[in-house]
Amino acid sequence: MGQSHISNHIRSLRFNHNEMTQQQLADQVGVTRQTIVAIEKGKYSPSLELAFRIARVFQMPLEDVFAYEEDPVQ
């Protein structure tokens, strides 16, 4: 399974928010820790709703948390 085109800064944002754990973030946005792990590793692109919920936890706009990277081949 290829890496997602959507990158994110969740790991650094967690660190900057009182070293929030993956489990704490997962509890706040209503998913399992495994899903946060997959998003951070770029193995899963979250739904738009989940992306907004994550951005809201960090009180940042969506595009400051997630970024879309164009395929270099295209």
Partner: peptide
């Protein structure tokens, strides 16, 4: 064990 299935599951 997770008590629910989220969107990834």
């Amino acid at each position: 064990e997770p008590s629910f299935a989220d969107e990834l599951d």
